[in-house]
């Protein structure tokens, strides 16, 4: 038995084997019976135990299908939300077309994730699982007029798109996703489409429902009604301050649905990769508005925090999120 050859052979099919061992090196310390000296006779057992630990599902780490099903739930939320667009009053034709385009994308994402998961996919929760008024099934929550009033509708749309962007971003570095390059790339290829949607919905909110050229409308601080196409600070609580604040706030950094070495901070974070970004970080930043340093980076959220946000729009008794 050659420990090195085993590692080398595994590396050929799993290039991350050393990282797995590295990030879980505590298994060496916590393995019982190896406190002092590893004898030659004990090595096979020890090696076997190490690999069992390394390749077993990490406590708190989601398996790739769990992450994909979580994404599928969010896509269902979005798909059923955009299906409710048809009674909106006063939309320009360009805005109506844009919402149809987004609705198509979300339906395609549902289809794609279902196909990818195959028999592991969750059951379709159906539209009955959601109450987009925020009324938990009463259909009379704080967003009661969302089906007809484009101001309410677009406020919700921005909230869902920004949440979706944060959710995919937060889940991508989960080890089971990173280990599957096909899934990782597909998830990122959905993530950027959600970000495009978020940007456009924000332009629509600047321009208003009847605008024929929403991209030509000015962003006006504090952005709750005329936001920039990107998140500035914590966006003053988002589209409906008081209700949507969590969408721009900090996440939970432990437990299920978090990634190793990732900290889920609020959108006003200006420390990236250990580098604090201010006007004095680089001579080229001189004179930059301080908001630019938070706008230049989106932040991710953990699965648990996203689920808490999504639960605002499911009916009482739903166990979807």
């Amino acid at each position: 038995m050659n420990f090195l050859q085993i590692l080398s052979a595994i590396e050929k099919v799993d290039p991350e084997v050393y990282d797995r061992l590295d990030s879980r090196r505590s298994v060496f310390k916590h393995m019982s019976g190896v406190g002092q000296k590893l004898t030659a006779a004990a090595l096979p057992l020890f090696v076997g135990a190490v690999f069992n630990k390394v390749y077993a599902q990490t406590p708190g780490g989601l398996a790739v299908n769990d992450v994909l099903n979580f994404a599928l739930k969010l896509e269902y939320l979005e798909m059923y939300f955009y299906q409710q667009r048809t009674a909106l009053v006063g939309l320009s034709s360009v805005n109506s077309t844009a919402l149809s385009l987004i609705a198509t994308d979300e339906a395609n994402h549902v289809k794609f994730l279902r196909n990818t998961l195959g028999s592991a996919a969750i059951n379709d929760p159906t539209a009955a699982a959601f109450d987009f008024t925020g009324g938990k099934g009463s259909n009379a929550g704080p967003f009661a007029d969302y089906r007809t009033n484009p101001v309410t509708y677009l406020a919700l749309a921005q909230s869902f798109e920004d949440t979706g962007v944060r959710a995919y971003k937060g889940a991508a570095p989960i080890s089971s996703v990173m280990a599957n390059k096909t899934v990782l790339t597909a998830a990122l290829n959905i993530h950027s489409v959600e970000a495009r949607h978020a940007s456009h919905i924000r332009a629509m909110r600047r321009g208003g429902a009847s605008s024929a050229n929403p991209s030509q409308a000015a962003a006006v601080s504090p952005y709750s009604t005329a936001p920039k196409s990107w998140i500035s600070g914590t966006d003053n609580g988002g589209a409906v301050p008081g209700t949507t604040n969590a969408i721009y706030g900090a996440g939970n950094n432990s437990g299920a649905g978090t990634a190793t070495n990732v900290t889920y901070l609020a959108e006003d974070n200006n420390v990236q990769g250990g580098v604090t970004l201010t006007t004095s970080t680089s001579a080229a930043f001189s004179g930059f508005p301080t908001t630019a340093f938070t706008e230049a980076f989106d932040e991710g959220l953990d699965v648990g925090t996203v689920s808490t946000i999504a639960r605002l729009f499911t009916v009482t008794g739903s166990t979807l999120f």
Binding site: K169, L188, A195, A203, S229, A259, G300
Partner: peptide, 28 residues
């Protein structure tokens, strides 16, 4: 990877508004 994700969604937000400035509604 997380850092790359934080930046790519900003690039996508940029791309969408620039595309809309070129042709309204062409964000995707």
């Amino acid at each position: 990877l997380y850092l790359a994700g934080k930046i790519v969604s900003i690039e996508a937000r940029h791309a969408a508004i620039i595309r809309d400035l070129v042709t309204e509604g062409s964000f995707v």
